[in-house]
Structures are given as C-alpha cells and as structure tokens.
Write a protein that binds this DNA or RNA. Structure first.
Lengths: 344, 344
DNA sequence: GTGAAAGCGCTAACAA
DNA sequence: TTGTTAGCGCTTTCAC
C-alpha cells in the first residue's frame, strides 16, 4: 500500500523507490520502469500528507472568495485552477459565503492549517485582524481585483476602465450620462466600486459635463440590482404606459460598473418602452458572455487571465522566486449594439 | 511553532497538549485554558499534514466538476462548501476543465493522493478507467445530478421534471410544443439530457400530442445555444422583417431543459417579433435568478440544497456511518409571465 | 489527569 | 546508481 511494499517487492530501498517514482535523476532507466510497473500492479497511491510532512510543501494553494456565485469570481477561479493544475498543484477553496458566512472560522480554522503553500485572495475586504492572521502564516499571497493594503494585487486599472467608457460615450455626443455602480454587499473589495465611480465622475468632469447625484445609482453589482436602478432612471414599468417621456429628465446614456448590472438596465429600458441605443445608450464593464449575445457594448477584461497570472505569481514565490512586479491587467472597449449617437 | 514548543513552555507533555488542544475529556479545565493561552501567544498553527499522517484522515473532501462556469455547478458547489465548513472540513476543487481539459491527469495525479477523505462528483460522465481508478481509492463517493452507474446519486427526477412542465403547458391548451435540450459538450452527465428529453416526449405522447423531430432541438445547455435554437424555431432575426408568420409551422410553446437556454429562446422570440406568451410560451428548468427577474416560468430545483445533502452524505460515510438512502431532490413549478393560454 | 514512546508514509542528507 | 539513517509534527496506545 505504501512505498515500502514496492521496495520489498522490487528488492530496492525505500529511497530508490521514492526517487524512481518522482522521476529523479540518478536512477537507472530500468529501475524506474520496474518501480513504476510494480507500483501500478499494487495500485499504489502516494500520500500527500506524508510527503507534505517530510518536505514542508503541500503542493496546494488556497483560493479565498467572498462568494462563489458571481461571474468574476467564477472566471477568475477557473483561471487560477487551470494554472495550478498545470503545475501539479491542488486548489483548496475557501468560500467566505457572503456577509452571512462565518468568515472568522474560515480564517482561523482552515486557512492557517498549513494545508496550502500560498494564497490567492479574490477582491477581499480584509479587516485588521484578518490581515494580521494572514501575515502570520507567512504564505505567499496575492489578491485579484481591487488593491488591498500591504498586498500585491493584479487587476485592471479601475479608474482607466471607466474613463475608456466615458470617452466612448462622449465621442458619440453624450453629455447626460448616468452611472450604475455601488457597493457590492456580497463582499467585493471596497476599493473597486469607489475607483470606478470616481473614475467616471472625473472623466465626465474632464469632458466638461457635470454629473448630478441622482444619476449615481446603486446596482449592487447584480442583475436584479441593475433592473431596479434602470427602473429608477427610466420611470419603471410605468414608463411604458406613457411612452419614453415618462421621466422628463432622462440621461441619454448609462454606464454600468458591471455587465450583469448593464443587462438589468437594458431590461428596464426595454420595459420602459425605450429604444436602445435610439433613446438611450448602455455600456457595461466586464465582458460577460450574455452581453455578447444581446449585443451589449462593454469594456472587457479577462478575469481568467488574471487568475492565471495570480496563480503563476504565487507559484513563483512558493518556489522560492522573489515577488516580481505585476503588470496591470488589460481592458479594452468592445463596441456592440447598445451604444450609439446621442439623440437630438 | 509546533505542539512541542507549547509543551516545553507549559511544562506539560506533547500528549497532554495535543489532547488539550482538541478539547478531549480527561484533561483538567485549567490545563486546557493554560494550553490554549500559550498556543495563542506563540501563534501556534496546527499542521494538517502531520495530523493527517497520524490519523489517516485529512478532514477534507474533494469536489469534481466538469467545468465551473455553469449555474448549476456553481450553486451546487456552494452548497457542498457550506456544509463542509460547518463540519470543519476543507474543500479541494478538481475542475476537469471541460472537453479540452486534461481529465486524465486530474484523476491520476491529484484526486487519488489521499488528500481527501471523500468525493462529491458533479454530473460526471465517467469512463470505465476513471471509474475503476476512483473505486480503487475506496473513498466514500456521491454524485450530484444524473445517475452514474454504480454510484449513489442525488438529484431531481429528470423525467418527472419535464412531465411537470408538459402538464403545465398542456393545461394551458398547448399541443404544439417544441423542446430545446441536447447534449452539453461541457461534460454534463449524459443521462440527464436523455432523461429530460424522453420525459418530454413521453409526456406529450401521453397527452395525445406527437412531437415532430424538427422540434427537438439542441441548445447545448447554454444561453448562446438557446438563442440559436430559438432562431431556428422562429426564423431568426429575419422573422422580425416579415412578422410573426415568418415560420409557417411554429410551435405555440417551447420547453427548455435549462433556464439558461430558455433565456436564450426568449431573446430569439423577441428578436423575431413574437410576443411572449401571446404568440409563444416559454418554460425552463432550474430556477435561475435571471429567470425570476425576466418573469420566466420554470420548474425550479435547488442545486445548493442538493450540494448540502451530498456533502452530508459523504461526511456521514467518512465518519463511519453507512450509506443511507437518498431521497430525490424536489422540483416544483414556478409560474411566471412567459407561459399563457395557447393562441387561437 | 498526565507522560513516554512508538509510529503514520514519506523525503533528504550522507554514505557506499 | 543505490542504501542507511533520521526525522517532518502529530496522535495514540499503554503506563503511571
């Protein structure tokens, strides 16, 4: 069942078997073949616990997510996973489970158990205690998404992202544009919503257009939240009755901090009897698949690539490499059918 | 750094410290307090590898998914995770990464390394080799989703689910109903698509309505696939030009094997200038959040609950309990706005 | 209620 | 190229 059995069967020593199994140099080809054959016959299964104890390396990295059921997290998780598997590492998932989840236990009980060699944090809001605990483990760590104090992070330039969107809109003649963003109660990094909103407001101001407060809405970074925000902007279903003019003071364009919200705003616009982009243009941020199908214009990013980069970074550190600088993740405008010339 | 340090500082033996740390009986209250205090002071972090080696239990279970970025898998994963954390177990994620992924390596290299005490498989299509390898590990195992030969599984009754949908549709007077299902290339259990389709065809036949082959479409279980299927059914965007009559032989209702596909069909219908449910009714299966917002009628299931149940089942087996019977997961009709009386 | 000692299955010097 | 010898940090009899 263990390495020992193979040793006795082959008449070799445990060390040689161990070396052969790991394909190390300094082992005769014939020995390697023999050992592998016997291992297969015996149905040998290595014990990662034993190997981990002996080497101090678990060949596993942890990924901490605030919640799992969000497009960005799922995609990023996929990227991290792909890269880890390539390197032969396992991925242990720590889901904080949103605001209701028992974060504390997750942090103390599991993450710190030396089960992993490194950590990838997804857009986390860490409090002081959590940060101290994490640092205490001295694990290589990196965060994906917004910046976190004292930790290296990979992600798009959030201010730049909204600026790109604003430039596109203004280029089409829009001057009255609303913004749907807001804090994500599910635990997204606090910095991201703020950076994007500030980027938006600043870019608009730079273009010479003021943004009234009532056009800065909270869409909770969800589809449903986007619908609610859109209803507020367009007068809701009621708007459909009286036509597109239900809300006298309507923006000609809406920038959403995520595609999921943009999808919701789109639905609200349609319900209100508005034509897109005839009456109102809508642009999102992310590059969500659904957006492609409905023709949503967006500033696309690639969370999967960010996940892969993050994984490579921790892996490099785990393997003794020093923490190199991380380039900002790219984002680019994808013009589709929901943005057009400003009306009038 | 280890249990030993605590022992020397407190003047106790390793065994007592170990017992105290785990809160076992036969340890003086005062001793426990003392040990805990010192452990905290020293920033003691237990080693799961060492504990695992000694006990043979890793306090972790593996979850194998074909791909991660699908609604059902994400939700189920969340359920498994919640239950595992409650029990103090870690979750290690094995993502096969779809058809392109290196399944083989995933199976051999990692899953079998005794890193986990049990396995939860999500809707997997296992080939003979994989099944043998898995059985070789002698891990408690359970699959969520369609039935898998030789393994216990939890999931909805897929034939019943489509029957519920058909009953609803027929009750509204529909006799010409199409079906969008199909094989999921991303690795969904082969059984599910077949069971649902057969359930549909049989239920229709029982109601006295034949289903022509051209109304049995493949939507690949994705939003985009649903759009394509809907275009085929309704004449695509071209239909919008000539009005609702573009396709002479149009069904009055469409049953989709997943809400994601139903959402796509809905989009296609709207594009073709059809009114829902005036011209055509659409019903899905799942209970996807987006569906609720757009008013999609569906046969809802609860993958999260299924995940929790699956986790409880493996945990019970891991703890020496015998494998109890598992009740079929519930599914129920949620009537919203996309289904109505058959036209005419 | 506590301690001593023997491993769990593997890796890693150090020899040969 | 292969073998020997110590552990890695914890749990667990078995004594006391």
């Amino acid at each position: 069942m263990g390495i020992q059995e193979i040793a006795t069967v082959t008449g070799l020593s445990k060390s040689t078997v161990s070396r052969a199994l790991r394909g190390m140099a300094n082992v005769a080809e014939t020995t390697i073949d023999e050992v592998r054959r016997v291992a297969d016959e015996l149905g040998y299964v290595p014990s990662s616990a034993a190997a981990g104890l002996a080497t101090g390396r678990q060949r596993a990295v942890g990924v901490v997510v605030p919640v799992i059921d969000r497009w960005f997290y799922v995609k990023a998780l996929g990227g991290v996973d792909a890269e880890l598997r390539r390197a032969g590492y396992d991925l242990v998932l720590y889901n904080l489970g949103g605001p209701g989840g028992d974060r504390d236990r997750a942090f103390r009980r599991s993450m710190l158990r030396h089960r992993v060699d490194g950590l990838v944090l997804l857009s986390l809001v860490l409090d002081a205690t959590e940060r101290t605990e994490l640092e205490l483990t001295r694990h290589p760590m990196i965060v994906i998404g917004g910046p976190a104090p004292g930790l290296r992070n990979i992600g798009v330039d959030d201010r730049a992202v909204t600026r790109i969107a604003v430039d596109h809109l203004c280029g089409l003649g829009h001057r009255r544009v609303a913004y749907v963003g807001g804090q994500d109660e599910a635990g997204m990094n606090v910095a991201v919503p703020h950076l994007r909103r500030d980027g938006f407001v600043d870019a608009m101001r730079a273009a010479g257009h003021a943004v009234p407060d009532r056009w800065l809405l909270d869409g909770r970074f969800s589809f449903a939240g986007g619908v609610v925000a859109g209803d507020a902007l367009f007068g809701g279903r009621a708007g459909a009755q009286t036509g597109a003019g239900a809300v006298p003071d309507r923006p000609t364009a809406v920038l959403c901090a995520s595609d999921e919200m943009a999808l919701g705003v789109l639905l609200a616009a349609r319900r209100a009897g508005l034509s897109v982009p005839g009456d109102v243009s809508v642009i999102g941020i992310d590059g969500h698949e659904y957006g492609a199908t409905v023709g949503l214009t967006t500033v696309a990013q690639d969370p999967e690539a960010q996940g892969r980069a993050a994984a490579r970074a921790v892996l490099a550190e785990v393997d003794g490499g020093t923490a190199g600088a991380i380039a900002a993740a790219p984002a680019h405008l994808v013009v589709r059918a929901t943005t057009g010339l400003a009306p009038g």
